[in-house]
Amino acid sequence: MAYPGKITKFAMGHLSKAPATRAFPLGELIITPHFRGKLVLKADDCIGCGLCERDCPAYAIKVENRGTKENKDFHVTLNLAHCIFCCQCMDSCRKGCLSYTPNVQLAGFNKDDLIVDLTEEWKAAQAVSAEEAPAEEAAVDEAKPEE
């Protein structure tokens, strides 16, 4: 039967139901387990081949050798402002040393903060996990889901 305001009964039913939306900054951020967020690098395995740089469609990732020819010191920098989170670099990497985290809240007030040195970040994380209890390590592992 056709009549105006047919949605009334359906809509009234929602008055007693909990809302489907959430007040965003408050409460927990729910992200599906396979969501691609910020990249992390396992710097130990990185051989500096530059395949990630070659395949990056946004020219966001960059591999550079800051050491000498004999004593290599590869640094992988990621420009989060350019990164489109496609994770093609992850697929291109033959060593599997790049992986994504569910970290998506990356906005900041300073443009320079958006250029991150993934190698330094990994070294810092290693230093922290070496100092602290092994329980911390488990938490870090959890934050990096394996493909």
């Binding site: 809509a11 009234m12 929602h14 008055l15 139901k17 809302p19 489907a20 939306t21 959430r22 007040a23």
Partner: peptide, 13 residues
């Protein structure tokens, strides 16, 4: 708030 709740939304504070 009634409008929002009928739309299954959180609504304003």
């Amino acid at each position: 708030i009634i409008y929002a709740r009928m739309q299954n939304r959180q609504g304003p504070p």
